[in-house]
């Protein structure tokens, strides 16, 4: 038997090695890619997000009162549906940025509600900026405004939506604080909280 293999012509042996290696690489690729994706998906679950008490005690509690948490039909948008892009490239970039969040988790930057609220304006603006840059892609994954039925929308919603799109606005330009509490905002209706953001941040008139 062993004599037979040794007697094989050189090209057949090379072919065997090449096919064997590439087959093995292919199988390993499936395993690693599958494993990588599984872990990636696992870090996108609600359970994973609220395993950090920063998320559990602050933003998650606020989100629980909103329509994206529970609603008539039970169709939900969990943390990652809004905060992590679905497309592979942007998702990897977002996951890389998340290492900074991991760092601050261990530094304890926002580990109490007081610390969190002190940073709320900054954190909210970071996320608004990201949403604005991606033209509210995470909203539009579900809410495709090309298919809005303005006849079904309430009057003021239909009017504001059409005005907004005509002016080149994107979802996040108006819909801020829909799933979490807003930071202090100076609305010009009396004394505002110290460090309040100007009202313009809520209604940016700049185009995308």
């Amino acid at each position: 038997m062993s004599n037979d293999t040794e007697n094989k012509p050189l090209w057949r042996r090379i072919r065997g090695v090449v096919f064997g290696t590439s087959g093995l690489a292919f199988l390993l690729g499936i395993v690693f890619w599958g494993g990588f994706n599984t872990v990636m998906e696992w870090t996108n679950t609600e359970q994973f997000c609220i395993s950090c008490h920063e998320m559990q005690a602050n933003v998650y509690q606020e989100y629980r009162n909103t329509i994206h948490y529970n609603n008539r039909t039970g169709v939900r948008a969990v943390c990652s549906d809004c905060h992590v892009p679905k497309e592979w490239g942007p998702k990897m970039i977002r996951k890389l940025y998340a290492s900074n969040e991991l760092l601050h988790h261990f530094l304890g930057t926002v580990d109490t509600p007081d610390k969190f609220n002190a940073k709320r304006a900054q954190l909210a603006q970071n996320e608004w900026r990201r949403m604005k840059r991606s033209d509210s892609q995470e909203c539009r994954n579900c809410h495709n405004f090309a298919f809005f039925d303005y006849g079904e929308q309430a009057g003021r919603a239909a009017r504001m939506h059409q005005e907004g799109f005509a002016a080149g606005k994107t979802c996040i330009d108006c819909h801020k604080g829909i799933a979490h509490r807003l930071p202090a905002i100076d609305q010009g209706i009396g004394e505002s909280e110290p460090g309040a953001l100007p009202q313009e941040v809520l209604h940016s008139t700049s185009l995308k």
């Binding site: 329509i67 309430a154 829909i178 807003l182 930071p183 202090a184 905002i185 609305q187 209706i189 809520l202």
Partner: peptide, 17 residues
Amino acid sequence: HSVQNYQVTTNYNKCMD
């Protein structure tokens, strides 16, 4: 109109928006 989930807090008053 509906006022579901309107925030009226020390930080922000949705009605006044």
